[in-house]
């Protein structure tokens, strides 16, 4: 009797789980539908783009859109620019923010409390408010229309400092005390002890910084007017304006602009999701 009840309960639970999986799975498909549609449209002939019923596998395959994107447009240049800007922005950000985080998280000095409060309070101000003063600086320094205008401000991420400080503070102080008493310099402790122990945190800062920099739109929009310097986001906008109603071609451009991050995400999704979640949980 009892066993039968239990079995009934289990069967009911299993059925419930299957139904829930179907519903939630259907919802999840809606999240990827725009990507699938983009990908399939990029392989279609223009005449088939607006066909009904909506086909996710093209009736007639067309590879010319990609040939146009890679050979006849400025996309290769946009790629190189995005890679360059993102690389320097993220590498620089990692150096500068981890150093500051080491000072805030593991060292004592006069004025620390005041400076930390100052850092925290800047988080209140939305980044777009800083756009105008940055524009004034850069035009006075004549570095608008250079990649430096994009790289320089992103090196000083207050969010990155706060994030890494949390990570460093979780490392027990006993780990570094012995080295300290033996007379190791702080640079050594930072480089040889702290950084290796903070790898997951570094990964978080790296992935967040990478995503932010790669996807940044408003900064290149404001600071770059020379098309040769365009990154992928502003580049895609320009490409789309030029292609006007050639939607299959536009979708090929959109696919090309999304592919690197999506591939990186598919292979490292665990780190990506943990990084974004942990930044949120601690935030």
């Amino acid at each position: 009797m009892k066993e039968k009840l239990n079995g009934n309960y289990k069967a009911k639970r299993l059925a419930g789980r299957i139904i829930a999986t179907v519903i939630i799975g259907g919802l999840a498909l809606m999240f990827v539908f725009p990507f699938l549609w983009m990908l399939s449209t990029s392989f279609k002939y223009e005449i088939d783009v607006m066909e009904f019923p909506v086909r996710l596998i093209p009736k007639n395959w067309n590879f010319k859109n990609y040939a146009t994107v890679f050979l006849k447009s400025d996309f290769p240049g946009y790629y190189l620019n995005s890679i360059k800007v993102t690389f320097f922005a993220v590498a620089g950000e990692l150096c500068i923010t981890t150093m500051a985080a080491y000072a805030f998280g593991r060292l004592n000095f006069r004025g620390k409390k005041f400076l930390f409060t100052l850092y925290l309070s800047t988080m209140m101000v939305p980044g777009q408010v800083l756009l105008l003063p940055k524009y004034i600086y850069f035009s006075q320094l004549h570095i608008t229309n250079t990649h430096l205008a994009l790289i320089l401000p992103s090196l000083f991420s207050v969010f990155g400092v706060l994030l890494m400080r949390q990570v460093f503070m979780q490392i027990p102080f006993e780990y570094t005390e012995a080295a300290y008493i033996d007379g190791a310099s702080h640079l050594r402790i930072f480089w040889n002890l702290i950084l290796p122990l903070a790898k997951p945190g570094l990964m978080t800062t790296l992935l967040l910084g990478f995503t932010w920099s790669w996807n940044d739109y408003i900064n290149p929009l404001v600071f770059l007017s020379n098309e040769e310097l365009f990154t992928l986001t502003v580049g895609l906008q320009r490409f789309q304006e030029d292609a006007s109603t050639n939607y299959a071609l536009i979708m090929a451009g959109a696919t090309v602009s999304l592919i690197p991050l999506i591939i990186l995400f598919l292979f490292t999704q665990k780190y990506f999701i943990e990084s974004f979640a942990s930044a949120g949980v601690k935030g």
């Binding site: 990827v32 725009p34 549609w37 739109y217 895609l236």
Partner: peptide, 16 residues
Amino acid sequence: MTFMPYISSLVSVATV
């Protein structure tokens, strides 16, 4: 699948 849109640039997905 549900997280994929978030890492994609708004410019690209807005175009789509």
